[in-house]
Amino acid sequence: MELKLEQVAGFPKSLSEKPQHFCPGCTHGVNVRLIAEAVDALDFPKKVVGVCGMGCSALLPDYLEFDMVAAPPGLAIPVAEGLSHELGEKALILVYVGEGDLYGRGLNALIHAAIRGVPLTVLCANNLNMGMSGGHLSPTTLLGQKTATTPGGKPANPYGISTDFIRLLLTIPGVSFAARFRGFTAGEIRKGREYILRGLQIQKFQRGFAFVESLGICPTNLELPPPEAVKRVKTATRGIYPSGLFKTPEVGRIP
């Protein structure tokens, strides 16, 4: 009898073997691996170009084995859009940016690229604070959350109530795909890879703006051991940053 072997796990081809600089337990490491696995799983040959923003994601070019551009803070989306104008169908463009960068100084560009339905696959690493800068307030910081700039916990006045940016993006017709997963629970990590892969597959035919958010933890700035950080973020974000699939090109808005 012939034994048929199928590889079910291994080191992703698109992941470099360089040691990563992320703090222990950080979700960035998970996200980078998911990106690599999703790119490996593409069932059509296509050049992939990655664009990363500033902050803890800025060293991504070292970790991924395809063309990479490190963009200035707040400007990953315009850089990716320019690349997309020039490369068109020749490449899939994947953007990886933290929420401090993307929803803060990068928000205007994000909204306009979404309105234009630019064929980009954007993965936002939302860890509720600006990690690399030293744990400062970010656009998704939760009410009462302690950060370097809100040491007494984030107050509603003057910083406002936490906002789900995916809900904002869902109002834009140019967004063809939107999903969120929690990068710290096993089941959702698998879904996360699915989402990134689908986001990329949509670009095979340049079908518009695909957006995935990975809700994550920054144990260093939460000043908690990773398991504690997971517990804390899981409870504190419940109902505020829900995970799931919200929009696909086939179905549209998923109720």
């Binding site: 315009p78 320019g82 690349l83 104008h85 020039e86 490369l87 205007n108 306009h112």
Partner: peptide, 21 residues
């Protein structure tokens, strides 16, 4: 291409140039 603001336009230029424009 008319960008949403001058800064975005300048960095779209950056991306396009990287890709050979």
């Amino acid at each position: 291409f008319q960008s949403e603001d001058p800064l975005s336009g300048l960095f779209m230029a950056y991306g396009a140039t990287l890709a050979g424009a």
